Computed example of a mutant assay.
Amino acid sequence: MKFIKPFFTIAVSLLLISCLGFSKKEETMKEKALYIPTENTEIAYFASGCFWCVEAIFESVTGVEEAVSGYAGGQTKNPTYKSIGTGKTGHSETVAVYYNPKKVSFETLVTVFFGSHDPTTVNGQHPDYGSQYRSIAFYSNAAEKQIIDEAIAKLNTEMYSGKIATEVTKHTKFYKAEEYHQDFERKNPNQGYVKAVSVPRLNKFKSKFPELLKGGEH
């Protein structure tokens, strides 16, 4: 019985931690270095829960030059962190992945996407729930859509028994999130959500796909 209280306290604490619960006052303000895409750079867009986590995961992948947090998938113009929190904008927290196709393929990025979250969860990734945290794989052309569709078909057959809830949506407009969200995990290593959710999620991905990491990390 003596273990029940500590366990309950930890569980409640984790429930109170969420991406949406962040206060700007907690953030350590640092300017993001200017990023200039090369002539070989292409962009892919993915949403799979809190963009702090997703951005850090894609930035760890070889061939990814930059990942930018933002909003996409909805109908509201010029959404903000506050407005998407209502769940009424239609947007999902999304990451724009700038990558060099000579070093990493779109197909591999799709593998990273599906391999770094639970695509069977409807409207959320633990501990964040709501339509703004739903899973979306965006495509810009027919070839990208085919790659996504084939990945889903294979995973539904081999792993998820037809339960994948990921939306497959044509990319139309990406809105960059406020500057204080960019590189959030790297700039705020001691923030509660980062320590409890973001870092463990990143480390889980790294242990699962060591061959995809920059610098040959294991």
Score class of each variant (00 low, 15 high):
residue 17 I to E: 11
residue 182 Q to P: 05
residue 24 K to P: 03
residue 206 K to T: 03
residue 157 T to W: 05
residue 30 K to R: 12
residue 136 I to H: 11
residue 142 A to C: 04
residue 61 V to Y: 11
residue 78 N to P: 09
residue 36 I to F: 08
residue 203 N to R: 08
residue 153 A to Y: 13
residue 189 P to W: 08
residue 89 T to N: 00
residue 106 F to S: 10
residue 91 H to A: 07
residue 140 S to I: 02
residue 93 E to Y: 05
residue 35 Y to L: 11
residue 87 G to A: 01
residue 68 V to G: 02
residue 35 Y to R: 10
residue 136 I to N: 06
residue 181 H to K: 01
residue 31 E to L: 13
residue 123 N to D: 11
residue 190 N to L: 14
residue 4 I to P: 05
residue 48 S to K: 12
residue 143 A to H: 15
residue 21 G to Y: 06
residue 132 Q to M: 09
residue 70 G to T: 09
residue 122 V to N: 08
residue 94 T to L: 04
residue 206 K to L: 01
residue 34 L to D: 09
residue 127 P to L: 10
residue 61 V to S: 01
residue 178 E to C: 00
residue 35 Y to T: 09
residue 14 L to V: 00
residue 121 T to P: 13
residue 125 Q to V: 05
residue 172 T to K: 15
residue 149 D to N: 12
residue 33 A to G: 00
residue 54 V to A: 06
residue 129 Y to R: 12
residue 115 G to L: 04
residue 108 T to E: 15
residue 125 Q to G: 00
residue 198 S to K: 06
residue 42 E to R: 15
residue 20 L to S: 00
residue 5 K to V: 06
residue 115 G to S: 06
residue 187 K to E: 02
residue 78 N to S: 14
residue 159 M to S: 04
residue 132 Q to L: 09
residue 167 E to C: 03
residue 92 S to H: 05
